[in-house]
């Protein structure tokens, strides 16, 4: 490591910030980039900067887009009385791929997760409510993941939105949870079988 030029070390540090890239992979990528054809690095740098500059969140639904509003919100043939609520922008793709849904979307930007300190105010719920006030929305379809947090969020939204007088429905079998649980996470969860880490101080009799 000591013999690596500082610029390479810096690149490695930057790459290892990326999700799913460990120090080993970061090092391999960095060494490839600084030794490979110059164009490869230049193209990548250009693509990075331009993608980051051009891609924004749709003002209305929160989807990733290069235009304002996004293609779906701007499409006059879509049914504006139905809004499908999803956790992440990428979930829109999943539903669009199925090809049967003709309404619009709303990206929540996460789900309730008290353990990670994510509460209702951290999600795009107020934005959804103001859409309900302004757009002729009759039905909200909740298409959140079926894990604990997703289901709790659906429950929460259904209750909160019922005060707005719109009908809320849920996908029969929500979306699969964001990323399949890695085994390591499962091991943590398996504390379920462990008595050394009680849920809380009060769980001992």
């Amino acid at each position: 490591m000591r013999s690596l030029p500082p610029a390479v070390a810096e690149l490695i540090a930057a790459l290892s910030q990326l999700p799913g890239i460990g120090p080993r992979t970061a090092e391999r990528l960095a060494l490839f980039l600084v030794q490979g054809p110059k164009e490869t690095a230049e193209d990548l740098a250009r693509a990075l900067v331009s993608a980051r500059e051009r891609v924004v969140h749709c003002n209305i639904c929160g989807a990733l887009t290069e235009t304002q509003p996004c293609a779906i919100c701007g499409d006059p043939s879509r049914d504006i009385s139905v809004v499908c609520v999803v956790e992440r922008p990428v979930d829109i793709l999943l539903i669009e791929k199925a090809g049967t849904y003709r309404g619009r979307f709303h990206v929540l930007g996460g789900k309730l997760s008290p353990i990670d300190g994510i509460g209702p105010e951290d999600l795009r719920i107020a934005e959804l409510e103001s859409r309900i006030d302004q757009e002729p929305i009759r039905e909200i379809i909740l298409a959140l993941p079926t894990d604990v947090e997703g289901d709790a969020t659906s429950h929460y939204l259904a209750k909160r939105l019922s005060q707005k007088g719109v009908k809320t429905t849920r996908l029969a079998r929500g979306l699969p949870a964001g990323s399949a649980l890695e085994f390591a996470d499962e091991l943590t969860l398996a504390r379920a079988l462990e008595d050394r880490h009680p849920l809380d101080s009060g769980s001992q009799p």
Partner: peptide
């Protein structure tokens, strides 16, 4: 059980 524990932890955090 895992689901339950997760829900209880979330609830306790709240």
């Amino acid at each position: 059980l895992q689901r339950y524990m997760r829900a209880v932890r979330a609830r306790n955090a709240l």
